[in-house]
Design a binder for these strands. Structure first.
Lengths: 232, 232
DNA sequence: AATATAGGGTGTATTTTTTACACTAAGCAA
DNA sequence: TTGCTTAGTGTAAAAAATACACCCTATATT
């Protein structure tokens, strides 16, 4: 790439929107920045991409460095490159999202000191974020909201074994509306991507619900693709 | 952006997939490259983005330079950044698509000599393209195929006044399957986004069909958005 | 004038999908 | 035993999607 006029050299980065679901709340993974600009602000995990790595692997690396999470498959959803989006100049960012299983608590902590801490922030308590990250988050949220209504992708967020009521709660939180119990169950079961287990919920002080598992094989059959997630 | 280690400086570009529809054929706009690498090959109109312009305006500028087309609204659909995709090194490309009206003929010709010519290539005759552009094209095509099945966006491709049969042909070409005439008409009219005109087709040697117009106001009402297209 | 040709235009019955809606059952706790 | 809380279930109605075939009309041809 010798001889290229300077004005064609740009900086680019990835940002990751990682969704989790815990205690009935949808959360996303934020870091608290430890560097200027926006030192002390919350931001999406993101950083510059090295030009010797693919964008996907950069996304994985950066997510790991900032939060300790490894091996998460992320899906690209949009690229942001407005001129004013970064105070230091033109930075283009490729944004990814993922949904991950967050049994009880998945602890997250930065392995570099670029971030002071990483937190699972409830979506409903989201503060204003650094750079244009609030906007990136909103766009990712629209995306999953839209996607979930025609493709059952939300299992990634639940524990491996879950009840239909838990699943419905998750849908209700994402779509931000009440759903009819009977219709919801009918439809989910009709997708034929759940495996009913011989096991019940434990530790509840009322009638225990049946547990289900998401069945990847059936999913692939019906939706004609792998779940997690096709590489570029 | 001073002091930044060199490995974070990247080159990036935009590529445009422009769909047209003419003589019953779906076409896309290609250029014949006049520079190495891939000199003499067909490619999507695309070029490097200057770091003083937004991605959208770069896309507009580049499309104009290579094809003479101006003021086309394009929608971003994916960003490609695999390591091996450009022989000279890492280039990240943000890909856009648009559908445009191609009455009879819209002539296209490069205004720079970076391209030797621009052509409307029938999709069914597509040659292997430069770089990974064949792949980019395939991805764009999946995208519009998918989108058209839940949102009537194809009007952009037709002349201002069109018959329902023309519209149906277009759908059949994009979806690559036959549709039932009565059901198609019923459904299109039920969308309530067409305005029936007091006018008929001319110059045909059989019973002339009624002409329709796409009605942006009604579209916006039903789909709750503008047609052409939201800015980043 | 008569006829041929080619696409224009229309309705109905059937199936499938979506929606609306309310009670009994089971398990635990007091 | 009773009370509480969530689990689990079916049906009727409406809406949407599908399958399917014939007559109409404008022009061209003889």
């Amino acid at each position: 790439m010798e001889n290229l006029p300077l004005q064609f050299e740009s900086i680019f980065s990835v940002d990751c929107v990682i969704f989790g679901f815990d205690e009935g709340e949808l959360r996303i993974l934020l870091i608290e920045r430890n560097e200027e600009p926006f030192k002390g602000w919350f931001a999406l995990p993101g950083n510059l991409v090295d030009n010797t790595e693919s964008i996907e692997s950069a996304a994985e690396r950066i997510l790991y460095e900032l939060t300790g999470l490894k091996g998460i498959f992320m899906e690209q959803f949009y690229t942001f490159g407005a001129l004013g989006r970064h105070p230091l100049g033109r930075v283009i960012t490729v944004a990814y999202y993922a949904m991950i299983r967050l049994n009880g608590q998945k602890d997250v902590k930065p392995v570099t000191d670029y971030a002071r801490q990483a937190v699972w922030m409830p979506v409903k308590d989201m503060p204003e974020l650094a750079f244009d990250h609030s906007r990136i988050f909103r766009k990712s949220f629209e995306k999953i909201k839209n996607k979930i209504s025609y493709q059952p992708i939300a299992f990634e967020l639940l524990p491996e074994k879950f009840t239909l009521t838990q699943l419905q709660n998750l849908y209700e939180v994402i779509l931000d509306k009440k759903l009819d119990k009977r219709n919801f169950r009918k439809k989910m079961l009709a997708y034929d991507i759940l495996k009913e287990l011989d096991e019940k919920q434990k530790g509840v002080s009322y009638r225990a619900a049946k547990l289900y598992k998401f069945d990847k094989r059936k999913y692939a059959k019906h939706f004609n693709k792998e779940l997690s997630f096709s590489k570029e």
